[in-house]
Design a protein around this nucleic acid. Structure first.
Lengths: 166, 166
DNA sequence: GCTGAAATCGCCTAACG
DNA sequence: CGTTAGGCGATTTCAGC
């Protein structure tokens, strides 16, 4: 099910729900220019096809007491697939790790972590992450401030692209 | 308005809406154990207080044709506040840059970028990012695969923490 | 196939206790 | 915080393009 399966209305729906995931279906229908029933059917279809992978309230981490955010670059000793998978599973089990991406280049993984304070993070770092099986190196960088945090994709870029080939 | 302003019901509301931002208010009320009207009032209060910063559908970038995801580490020549701010503003203006975090340590910023394909990203990299005023160095790493991508914070950790001090 | 209209059901959201 | 209650939205059904 490639992108070409999506017509302009579907793309508008995705863009609107990415911007406001709690919009009512009738409001959404109004914005994309169709009536509510077909709009709802399209949303369900997009959900089932996996284009929409969930809806989430974006919470303010710092205001909720998670004062520390850290990016951790992790190098492993073995890059065999079974060892990569084991490490990924460990990341899934660690609640302080919110994201885990496998990278090319000199480092194997980048992790985005949160913690209530530095000492909590340092305990996690020394007792869990650095101590984990197969972990060769960990370099961490504290987030000083966040200048931009936009979820998802830029639909403007997508539309420009489609217009160019159309 | 610190975290202590939040009672257990507020925290449950936040956890539920982080997990499913499109849940109906009556379903939410049922889950947190109060009736719908006070539940809605709490949600509104949490929104206005900034604990909830929005609701977003999580879309599948790759399935939408954004095949390339990249982390870029950026070093600047000048770290004067005015120059940092200028760079941050540029990041906000670039649609391919989805996140921009200022870091401590050897690198000044980490950027999460998306692009439809490698050539689009490389054009952006060479013509925009590397070419931008005050940018001294850019190191990029392609995302091979994503093992975990959980938005927000781990409420389980928050509750454990509160129980320990209680 | 798709959409839209009508009708039903359930939710939202005041106002009040 | 809960209950009530009126209005609106969600969702099914059905007809038409």
């Amino acid at each position: 099910m490639p992108t070409s399966r999506l017509d302009p209305i579907d793309r508008k729906i995705l863009a609107e729900l990415q911007a406001d995931g709690r919009m009512t279906n009738v409001e959404l229908a109004k914005r994309v220019g169709i009536s509510a029933p077909p709009c709802l059917r399209r949303v369900r279809t997009l959900e089932e096809a996996g284009f929409i992978r969930g809806y989430h309230a974006k919470v303010d981490s710092r205001e909720l007491g998670f004062e520390v955010q850290v990016f951790a670059m992790v190098g492993l000793q073995s890059q065999a697939e079974v060892d990569l998978s084991k490490f990924e599973q460990r990341c899934r089990d660690w609640p302080l790790v919110r994201e885990c991406h496998m990278l090319n280049g000199e480092v194997d993984f980048i992790l985005k972590c949160v913690a209530p304070d530095l000492s909590t993070f340092q305990s996690f770092l020394t007792e869990q992450l650095t101590a984990a099986e197969n972990v060769a190196s960990v370099k961490t960088s504290l987030v000083i401030r966040c200048a931009k945090d936009e979820p998802g994709v830029p639909f403007s870029v997508m539309e420009e692209r489609l217009n160019r080939t159309a």
